[in-house]
Design a binder for these strands. Structure first.
Lengths: 210, 210
DNA sequence: AATAGTATCCGTATAAATACGGATATTATG
DNA sequence: CATAATATCCGTATTTATACGGATACTATT
């Protein structure tokens, strides 16, 4: 029988300890240690090896869950993070998915769900429950209103800008004068209510325009 | 009994007609019309009113599924698109979710799943099956390797750049000389292997850095 | 103690972007 | 048909960004 070794990272002592007690019931799960923030978590990770899973709270002091996720990802560590959050914002969920979370649970999840996700994730599979996925998908589509504020040409120019082409290069590519592209640029900035290229690309990305 | 009125948009005649036949079995579903591409779809939409759902193929000539999705979204139409695709790339799935799809089915889905999704979506709810969601989530986290290539200061500067601040403004904000920020900028461009701000912001977004 | 990485600063120069203001031909749209 | 939006073009001026090359002080790590 392979024991699942996990760490609990949550700044609420009661929750942390409760969770630990609760997991004692399951023979295949061993809570190696509990920590109260991201910094302590990485210290613990240095001492303990062969950790399979971390149950990770998002809202922690010092180094929050997002930072921990990103750092784990950067470290290329084999530990698989499961987020335990109070919030079911699609925003949060999508961020966690992007940052490499293997699961996302709400704090009011029932035990069956919790142990189920732990077991699935311990095998290296990701699991986001249908209701969580739904929240995320809804969020993803919320953004972006109108692709229509930009004209076709403007959209085309925006695409080329985002690829790093300069005004001159774009002009050459589209067989028009640089002044034309400059005008397009100016109009795009105006329409998206931004003041320079950096902000433009950021906003366009958010709006799903490129 | 509320009849579900739907349009089928797919460039493969056999598939289109087969689907239509198949849906005849269900009394609550009425296939209003079938079209072969996006342009024809919008023409049909002009003539027929009260369409609830469109079963939408991604790979169509003239105007493909993505474009149709985006246009529907822009129109703010009440019609709810369900994607029927041959591909289960997380990439495609995520794009569709972003573009407002209400469902995503593979072409080898079984009938039960199809009619189930149609009925769920007809009530205004989105439905992406667990296996489809999983593909998408896996894709989302694939990107981004190292937050570590940038130093702390560089990351900070990058964040401010992405908010549209100029070099001078950033310098003032961080109480250093403009030349320092210029150097940071140059180093960031070098590290991310891009040649200007536009490309920088795009790449940073993809890498989940901002 | 030495090395590597980071943060800070400087000069010179060119290229590119942004801010004004104005104009015409074509295409949609009411 | 008239109006509005679009794509195209132009000038002038200023501000920013990018490309070179070089330097010092601090920190952390070997």
């Amino acid at each position: 029988m392979n024991e699942i070794r996990l760490i609990i990272a949550d700044d609420h002592e009661l929750f942390r300890n409760g969770l630990k007690e609760l997991l004692k019931k399951y023979d295949d799960v061993h809570v190696v240690t509990c920590v109260a923030d991201g910094v302590a978590f990485f210290e613990a990770l240095d001492n303990e090896k062969n950790i399979d899973i971390v149950l990770l709270d998002i809202g922690m002091p010092h180094m929050d869950g997002f930072e921990v996720l990103n750092k784990i990802k950067a470290l290329n560590a084999s530990i698989k993070p499961i987020i335990i959050s109070m919030h079911d914002d699609g925003n949060y969920i999508a961020k966690c998915a992007k940052s490499g979370a293997y699961g996302y649970l709400l704090k009011n999840t029932d035990q069956e769900e919790l142990i189920k996700v732990i077991r699935i994730v311990s095998q290296g599979k990701k699991y986001f429950s249908p209701s969580i996925s739904e929240k995320m998908i809804n969020f993803m589509s919320v953004q972006s209103v109108s692709k229509d504020i930009l004209s076709n040409k403007e959209t085309e120019v925006l695409g080329l800008i985002s690829e790093g082409l300069t005004t001159k290069e774009i002009a050459a590519k589209l067989f028009v004068s640089s002044r034309t592209i400059e005008t397009h640029r100016a109009n795009i900035l105006k329409k998206l209510e931004v003041k320079n290229t950096a902000e433009l690309i950021k906003k366009a990305t958010q709006m799903n325009l490129i």
